[in-house]
Design a protein around this nucleic acid. Sequence first.
RNA 1: GGUAGCCUGUUCC
Length: 313
Amino acid sequence: CRECETMIRDFCLEGKLDAALWLRNKLIANGYIPDLVTHNHLVNGFCKAGHLEKADFLVREMLDHGPFPNCVTFNTFIKGYCLKGDMKKALSLFWSMPEHSIRPNKITYNILLHALCKNGSVEDARNFLEEILDDGCEKKPVDIIASTIMMDYCFKNGDTVEALQYWMKMSRQGRRTDVVAYNVLIHGFCLSHDVKLGFSVFGQMLKSGILPDACTCNTFVSHFCKIGRFDEAWNILVSMLSMGVAPDWITPKMIIEGLCVHGDVVKANELLHLMLESSIVPEPRVWNALIHGYGKCGEVDAALWIKDLMVNS
RNA sequence: GGUAGCCUGUUCC
């Protein structure tokens, strides 16, 4: 019945949760119990759709009749409550894990850390982190993702000093910092309007053999668009392309919208075609920005032409 | 003994 389980999984991924649940119930009625991973897909589907009552029902059934939930089940379920902003419930689930003899893993901690930063405060997250570290043996190195989460939210709250402490701890531990950690650091410097530092971090990143990605590019581009330096933003995009970084639709979106607002529709149009050549099709609002941009300076023909282009893309 | 699918961090809005 591997095929039925694959079907349930695909239904979940496509958001067809009713069908997925129906098939699961059907199989059980016929005496076959879908395996744990399949159940986890169902829980995940319900959580992502915000139907936590259904996820809750499913997890209860799993506890009572199997397949017995594992750490992934709880991670998924906890994240569901985090997305709803219900940290009380998320934390109580976390603390209930030992009752079921399920051990939380790094991912569990990171889900909660992230949500505590987002829905609560960095303070709450810091306390939680300390609690976790105290719990086990000493000198446990902090997970790189956990450090990145903390660093990110410290920057976002304007606490640069603490953010950098997380960064230094990370690099001191000799753990391999990755592209996301660098992106967060660069973004942090851009937030405090210190692009120069951002660039020097970027250089450091290249030196340690870590390749930039679309986020790295977008972080710089976003910064330059915000201060109205579209020439610089454009240069970033071009040099990233030459480094082999594949831009996503966010990159052109920022520059095109910015250029249109500032009245340089011609340049925006040029960029649009560049992206279309790389078969990157922008969002509707990017097209709107261009159409509106041409309309604003009275070039109705050009506006209509863009509209045709949009329909054909 | 080998093998598969599920859960965590960064950029625009």
